[in-house]
Design a protein around this nucleic acid. Structure first.
Lengths: 208, 208
DNA sequence: CACATTTTTAGGTCAGTCCTAAATTTATGT
DNA sequence: ACATAAATTTAGGACTGACCTAAAAATGTG
């Protein structure tokens, strides 16, 4: 299993489709480009596009697993004596330094493509939601909360809301044409402000 | 203008379509019922269904204006000396007593219809989002916040997250078959807990 | 009652999603 | 090395929701 050639070809096909799609989307907008055009540009059958990317949105937002699992992973991996809030803030600030796509960094063309498309903004909301659900599960397990107890879900909702707000802030600045470096500087302050808002509410929650 | 007969017929047509749709959706699920079937059941043309309800989801979730404007209205109407958080908590608790659909009360069939349909859960997320945006606008205007200041958006996100968490909690209990009276009793406690979480963060925010 | 306006209808186009069966390509066992 | 198995890609089509246009029907107004 996992033989080289077949796997290689699959990755090449996937990459060819993804590249063609991204180019067309940024050129002409997500909604006006059809799957048939993408297939033609990548020189594959329409069905092959669908096989690799079940929904059209997946062609533009291809990091769902990484994105959806991020917050839960950060909390699961936090060190002793660190609260969930502290771990998420630390990791977010590190992401700012990295200009990480997972917290909202991209290019002006990409940011415009997303905000110009109702389909893609809806899909992004969906990803934020999955991310929050995964976080809620980790928090519930970690704090051994009783079934029916809302605390973990509420905390996940608040922490998810903070991340989503900062994500949208980064996207706004990106659309305005600011450089990633300048955005990083601005958002570092924003992050301290937004996480600071939750400090008094969640400072002791899910302390390991 | 606004002559009686024409307006009456429109309302009747709208009601006939909505009733047929609701009945079919609860019987057989949102996704498997087609617009053509709804049109046939209501004895109108397919296009008439689309004219009244531009998206299929509107046939099941018909309170978008009321829903989306609710939080913003509550905050705009709050009395002197009341914070945004206090006003929203007060109004939510009143909604619990009313068994208000806007905060999540419905029937088991309705709740199941929604959670069984990805399209409808996505649409519900969208409504929560619009509601949060409207709240953010009111908060920004009311606190005279500088452009680029994230505080209003962050506060709206946290308050919206609280409402969404409680909404989902009510839907969960409804799906489990609890009576609205029992749900009201449980959710009153949940609301105090969830809004209490935000007390230390937002007690002084947007005090009028 | 004739005329203007609004609403409904019929018919069609288009794109995204899903399905099936066949053809092609790659891997594996003898 | 070759036959066989497995995985991938292809072609074609079905179905639905969304959208469009022109005509028909219903309603309100002078």
């Amino acid at each position: 299993m996992a033989t080289g050639l077949r796997e290689l070809k699959k990755q090449q096909t996937r990459q060819a489709i993804s590249s063609a799609a991204t180019r067309l989307f940024i050129e002409r907008g997500f909604e006006t480009v059809t799957i048939a055009e993408i297939a033609a540009a990548a020189q594959v059958a329409k069905m092959t596009v669908t096989n690799y990317f079940p929904r059209k949105e997946d062609l533009a937002l291809d990091y769902h697993e990484t994105f959806a699992a991020g917050l839960a992973r950060t909390v699961a991996d936090r060190s002793a004596g660190e609260s969930a809030l502290a771990a998420l803030r630390r990791e977010f600030l590190a992401g700012v330094e990295r200009h990480d796509a997972v917290i909202g960094f991209s290019s002006q063309g990409f940011a415009r493509m997303i905000s110009d498309s109702p389909t893609l903004t809806a899909r992004l909301r969906d990803l934020h939601d999955q991310r929050e659900d995964a976080l809620a599960q980790v928090l519930a397990a970690d704090t051994a909360s009783a079934p029916g107890d809302l605390t973990a879900r509420a905390a996940a909702a608040l922490l998810g809301a903070a991340h989503r707000t900062l994500f949208e802030h980064i996207m706004d600045l990106t659309r305005e044409g600011r450089s990633n470096r300048q955005i990083a500087s601005t958002v570092t302050r924003s992050a301290h402000q937004v996480f600071g808002l939750l400090e008094t509410s969640l400072a002791d929650y899910a302390m390991r």
